[in-house]
Design a protein around this nucleic acid. Structure first.
Lengths: 200, 200, 200, 200
DNA sequence: GATGAATGAGTCTTCATTCAT
DNA sequence: CATGAATGAAGACTCATTCAT
């Protein structure tokens, strides 16, 4: 399914992905039918299968886009910053904002992680994120700003910690993403820095 | 559906819950049919509905039991221990071991968190866990061993962090739960203690 | 299924039939399950099949009893009365009272008439009633009190008319059975025209 | 379920309703499965649910159509006729013919009256018919052609009487509808007594 | 490109009936 | 007599997918 799409086609595809994301997040992937998606958009069923090979492929596309999107957000946030600790801070803040802006995508991702056939896509995204984090940690350790620890563990830990905090406080409790990011950062940094320094 | 069950009945119910848990974890809740469950157990379809009102209720029961089980494990682990930091350490270790021993239940829980109708059950369990953690943190703060921070945030953070670490390292990578618990603990403690002290 | 029953057994059977009648009337025959009946009576499922061969037989028994019961009521009401018109009047009044006292049985009978396998039982009962009515009409005609008409037609007509009036006014509108019987009788006996005129 | 249907769709819907009516009448509503209906028509199961939300809705649609159809037949029969007695006669005759031509619909209606959830639809139709009848009776009374009686009672009585007579003699005994209508009319108009006498 | 219609395997669930205890 | 448990065929309904128009 690698059709070349006209601009109008691109937009249709966008609509389908966006609407599906909202429904998947609110109602669950399985409980949301293709019929529901096309009806919600006021189009016929053929449209769906013109743009996607299957419902499964649609979800995969959503996931792929999500990973690209969040990565882009992070890269942009740390562009030109040298201090690895600062990069971590900025990356976390960017993630928090992205999560706040893409509540539904986040929820869909959570689901995808629970079903075997979608896990590879999830892992791919997460591995990239961990890789980024490891680089920062490694840099920090080399420069002696970060305690010498297993960057693999810690990378995962930071990711898990932030993901969960964001899910809980931003989505469930509607808190300000910057504030949540600040707390997460403070928590992360005071746990990994060589010398305790004042929380941000 | 609050039938009084004979011992034989109790056992059947157990079998159904255990087997369903395994299938839900491996194959997903939705993709696993009731037919598959009863066939796997070599019983008639009616049996399922003798013990559970619906497939949904079954999952809810699995979740309820899981929350009780893990809580019991934690309580037992910290029984008689006074030092709140030690209680946190022991609680985390107990969780790690429980997670290792109940891989499938853990996975099912992850899924349940992604579908609205199951979330209340999940929240209930998590709130209790956070509550326990808050108590320990609060005690620690009062005694001056733990930095004075928002116990609500931190409680959640610790839970999210450990949950994710366990999922990733114990389940996905097959690592030793005690080891993972140790790292998690070290990470948590060095982040929240007034003075860095040697990890237990 | 012609067990000899102990007095206690008789009572059980009674309970089952009465309760089933109520449920069948309120909820419909098909929508009411055997499980519901025994649960409502707080007994096990075996009890049901001890007294009845099947759900179908139960309904048939209910019908048989109903026909006997209403016939008995009518016979008793006209005992010793000679005037055929008066017998018709009294029979109608007795039916009205019986219908009022056995609302549920009446409703169950209505249903039974709609399903082929129960129709024979219904027809049996109705034929007896028509036969009684015909006898009265015939007597009346012979004595010159009743116009000479096809007693078969008229017998049916009177039965249909009263059955429907009773269903509508006694059950649906909760009116007094004696009053409804009076109107029905008046209608039957006098027709509706001011002066008799040639039938169209 | 208010799909706009193409002509082809309209036809399918017709087929489904007609065939279902036949099966419901012959076999009963509950004993007739959706599978049986679609198989009998040689189409896939999904077709049924494309046109009807449920089996229940289908029956409701059948009832609604029946009421419209019979009313239309009556209206047409009495169009332009002024004499209320004549209108009653013609209405009865039209009903008789309609009943003869729609044996199955009539039987389905009988069933529907026995199950609570369908009764409202039945009542709606019957109330309209009674209303029509009352108007005629009222006119007749005002003009002094009909005895002064409770038009509500009598309206119901005439309806019940004719419905039952038609069911019995037209359907069960296969008699000519015009003949049956004539007898019913005569009965309604003249009563059964030789000479009018004071009502009991 | 798009639509309404159709497919049919598959889902959850019900229920009359049977039977070991 | 009575019960709890079990059976499994059958039922209503869903839904991803296909296709003629």
């Amino acid at each position: 399914m690698n059709r070349k799409l006209t601009p109008r086609g691109e937009e249709r595809r966008r609509q389908l992905m966006d609407y599906a994301t909202v429904r998947f997040a609110g109602n669950g992937y399985h409980p949301t039918s293709v019929a529901e998606i096309v009806t919600g958009l006021g189009v016929g069923k053929g449209v769906f299968y013109w743009y996607f090979e299957s419902k499964e492929e649609l979800l995969l596309e959503i996931l792929k886009e999500a990973m690209n999107s969040i990565r882009r957000a992070q890269q942009q946030a740390i562009r030109g910053v040298d201090d690895p600790v600062r990069r971590i801070e900025l990356g976390i803040a960017a993630s928090a904002r992205w999560t706040a802006d893409h509540r539904e995508v986040h929820q869909v991702t959570q689901f995808a992680a629970t079903e075997e056939r979608f896990r590879p896509a999830i892992r791919r995204g997460r591995d990239i994120a961990v890789e980024d984090m490891r680089r920062h940690l490694h840099d920090g350790i080399e420069r002696g700003i970060i305690r010498d620890m297993d960057v693999d563990y810690i990378g995962h830990a930071i990711l898990g910690l932030t993901t969960d905090l964001f899910g809980t406080f931003i989505h469930e409790r509607g808190m300000d993403p910057d504030e949540v990011a600040a707390v997460a950062t403070s928590f992360v940094l005071d746990g990994i820095l060589v010398d305790a320094r004042e929380p941000a």
